[in-house]
Design a protein around this nucleic acid. Structure first.
Lengths: 331, 331
DNA sequence: ATGAAAGCGCTAACAA
DNA sequence: TTGTTAGCGCTTTCAT
């Protein structure tokens, strides 16, 4: 069994209170006593029982990270980034994913009420009333990472989907493209909705040609992208370029184009969104919009820790992490 | 603040002990009383304080997952799989990655001594005496996920690197390839070492031609794969096929081949290892060896939970998760 | 600067 | 079946 402060107190001939004070680095202990205690603690290879410490303090230095029911490299990077940031401030990261066995709401309730986490970061692709209800208690602080900055009165870390999409279209216009199609993401996905909106407004403002039959819904997967691209490319009038809601969809377009014998970017140009690893290795390398996952994770963790440590309540804040256009050879 | 059993006891007119018993589903409570208590608990939206529960029980239902200082889709899948499995048995998953700010040894010590985790899963690409020392206390149970099944007297979940590599080479031989090269992984990486060994032995046994200059070391990255492939492909005598230690390296070969104007698989065939997502989308789709990450995670979690719950100590066990050859068009 | 003691929420041993 | 009580390891308040 692990040594405890009682044991150290006995060996050091002091009270457990003094040991506690010395170990938690308070300055109301005589320097000499402190040194002595620290030495014994080291000898015994003492590690504080974090469970007991958190318990008695009535708070936890565990940060919960609630993930949705999908799995891609995005999350792996977010997790690392959050864990990195948390660790520096003395926190641990607990992952709790939501899936068939456990709903998002259940995950939120656990984080909110079990006391196991002192705060949590919620990754949600969408919001609904069930989730809102679960979040209402605010028993422990949380921040949300989401595509939508208009979710409500929460602290939100988001990327600027709308402007990123708008600027992507502007880039295409600047490069002489006039006829442009869009493969959208799922309706209920906020990232997807905002990208779509940015696309549509840019088309209007910049006087680019698009039409209903050139705007096809997909679901962020490669397969759905290929299906959607087929729908677009087999029409009598073809667009010059497709703006895909994400990279996987864009790569689905590559497959469709290849099977139809169309060359990228000459016959059909393509632009994606996300800059996943694979995008630089497809042929031709995909022009896309880079999402800075590391900064997203870091910012979320920092904001949460700020909320966990300060007492006064600040107004909810939306932090938009900017994106970056990565120009390669697909348009 | 969250309701506690004291509050419930008061409202139900019973003692806290009875409440505790009712809530933890013991059967030594009168059915009627139990119902009453459960109802009140629900009314109060009661959630047990897990910190207190774990603390008093002297154990934790948190499973630690120690990750090395790298990040790829492999980990994202492992995390999900472990978390899924843990959740079903009532455990949480805490991720603790090792990196510039926190060494592997430090992570192990935290998991071992802080009481915060009741057990942990260690992902290590290699073993050394420092790590061995940290693991020696066995204060809490753990299992290791590693490429090497010969690490020592531990419970290890591993893939059968040696046989997977051997069989891959056999597959190549069966398909008529005679001259074969290998791009190896880092020396200190056990997965890499075993794949290399499997390759070498297969070459000997199956009488395939290889030579020193056709066996080049890389470091699992795409760039290093491209460099290594260049070294191989620019020699006067070229092999017919390259067995790459992992998929990213294999894709590096694609780049090298493309720049040298060599067609895959006609001029040079390629086979990889891992079956990462991207492998099915490169052109031509990569033939490779699929590593079943989901089963690895699941098995590791199950084994660990078994160790955490049973009292008698079993002999350390090595569990090899089999791999699967995925035949595509690169050889 | 130090010690004594209460108490965090819960479980479990013992008593009734 | 139910209640009483000790105690898990630690922090913190109140004395000294």
């Amino acid at each position: 069994m692990n040594a405890n402060i009682k044991e150290i107190a006995k060996r050091a001939n002091v009270s457990i209170a003094t040991v506690s004070r010395a170990l938690s680095g308070q300055n109301n202990v005589r320097e000499e006593t402190k040194k002595h205690i620290l030495k014994i603690a080291r000898q015994l290879n003492y590690n504080p029982n974090l469970l007991a410490r958190n318990f008695v303090k009535g708070k936890s230095n565990i940060i919960g990270l609630i993930l949705p029911d999908i799995s891609d490299e995005f999350f792996s990077e977010i997790i690392k980034s959050i864990d990195d940031t948390s660790f520096i401030s003395g926190y641990f990261t607990m992952v709790i994913s939501s899936h068939k066995n456990r709903s998002l709401v259940e995950s939120i309730n656990t984080m909110m009420n079990s006391g196991i986490a002192g705060g949590f970061i919620l990754l949600v692709p969408f919001m609904n009333s069930e989730i809102e209800k679960a979040l209402k208690s605010e028993r422990v602080p949380f921040v949300i990472i989401s595509g939508d900055s208009e979710l409500g009165d929460y602290d939100i870390i988001t990327i600027d989907n709308y402007n990123a999409a708008y600027n992507a279209v502007k880039f295409l216009a600047d490069n002489g493209y006039k006829k442009i199609a869009h493969i959208a993401g799922p309706d209920e996905n906020n990232d997807a909705a905002l990208r779509r909106e940015g696309f549509l407004n840019a088309c209007t403002k910049l006087k680019l040609e698009t039409k209903k039959s050139w705007i096809v819904k997909a679901d962020f997967t490669l397969e759905s992208g290929e299906r959607a691209a087929n729908l677009i490319l087999k029409q009598k009038e073809r667009p010059e370029v497709i703006f895909a809601a994400n990279d996987m969809t864009a790569i689905g377009c590559y497959n469709a184009a290849s099977k139809l014998g169309l060359k990228i970017p000459d016959d059909i140009a393509i632009i994606g969104f996300d800059d996943v690893l694979i995008s630089q290795y497809v042929s031709p390398p995909l022009t896309t919009i880079k999402v800075d996952t590391e900064t997203i994770g870091k910012t979320a963790a920092e904001k949460l820790i700020q909320k966990m440590t300060q007492t006064e309540k600040l107004k909810p804040q939306t932090i938009k992490i900017s994106t970056e256009l990565v120009i390669r050879n697909s348009c």
